[in-house]
């Protein structure tokens, strides 16, 4: 926390948010908060707008209506330069890793450090090795992104997102395209990052396995009513939700998604 007036434990506050593409609205009246240190899931069927919601939270898209406050400051109202500064405080991991194809894995991880710190090269090297080891890629620093598998790209993307020790981590479909073992390993890694670094984690997913194993709370986006159907502990919602859609979604085979 930057020591400003905001003493609440909410890292992200979303107020009456409407999101969509152009004039088409996909979700509206979204109201929720994400607390410091929790793993929060954005859950819903495909096409419900969960990835879009994440892109709004990280400031890439402008909402149609409403406000998003991160660390107590509106990312919607912030001018571009200020928004970029805010973005440096979070790490974002994209579906395919989003590694820069012309750089090796080490250079990918080093990029944010070279851009935003004045660390000497030796220190940057050390941090890069440390972050790659954290995601089990210690021996792959000199590989190009095209030479490694999809799961490894995701982990390398995570190492890059961790380079500046962010307080807030976003994951877009971390387990998509991974085999069950790799996906479970990634889930364990995410949880250990939260436990070790005390980071707040936001995950977009439709994989129920990973939701039940790592998420503290979820928001469930129902595209048929264009808004959140439920917010809470996924295990509790699965048993006790009064909403029929929520109950059927959480009790269904996760792989079938919507």
């Amino acid at each position: 926390m930057t020591g400003n007036a905001n003493l609440s434990s909410d890292v992200i506050e979303v107020r009456d948010l409407s999101i969509g593409y152009g004039k088409r609205t996909v979700m509206e009246h979204l109201d929720f908060s994400i607390r410091r240190g929790e793993i929060f899931g954005l859950l819903g069927g495909s096409g419900c707008g969960k990835s879009t919601l994440m892109k709004h939270l990280i400031g890439l898209y402008r909402p149609q209506k409403g406000d998003i406050r991160i660390f107590g400051e509106s990312i919607v109202a912030a001018p571009p330069e200020r928004r970029r500064e805010m973005m440096r405080r979070f790490g974002v991991t994209y579906q395919g890793g989003a590694l820069f194809g012309s750089l090796t894995l080490s250079e990918n991880v080093a990029l944010p450090l070279q851009e935003f710190t004045d660390y000497p090269p030796e220190k940057i090297d050390r941090i890069v090795r440390e972050k790659l080891a954290l995601v089990d890629l210690a021996d792959f620093g000199n590989y190009m992104p095209a030479e490694i598998s999809g799961g490894m790209k995701k982990r390398a993307g995570l190492a890059r997102a961790l380079a500046l020790d962010p307080e807030l981590l976003f994951f877009d479909e971390p387990s998509a395209g991974l085999d069950p073992l790799a996906s479970a390993a990634l889930d364990r890694l995410i949880r250990s990052l939260r436990d070790k670094l005390g980071a707040t984690v936001v995950i977009v997913t439709h994989e129920l396995d990973s939701i039940f194993s790592i998420a503290d709370r979820v928001i469930m986006l129902d595209k048929s009513v264009k808004t959140a159907a439920a917010i809470g502990d996924p295990r509790e919602l699965k048993e006790h939700s009064g909403n029929a859609w929520v109950k059927s979604f959480l009790n269904r085979d996760g792989l079938k998604g919507a």
Binding site: K55, I58, G59, L60, R84, E85, M87, R88, F90, V92, Y94, Q95, G96, A98, L99, F100, G101, L111, P112, E115, F116, G157, R160
Partner: peptide, 18 residues
């Protein structure tokens, strides 16, 4: 265009790089 498909451009933006 390919960087856009791979979300590399979004990644740059969220790193705070123009």
């Amino acid at each position: 265009g390919t960087m856009k498909v791979n979300e590399e451009i979004s990644a740059l933006e969220t790193m705070g790089i123009r």
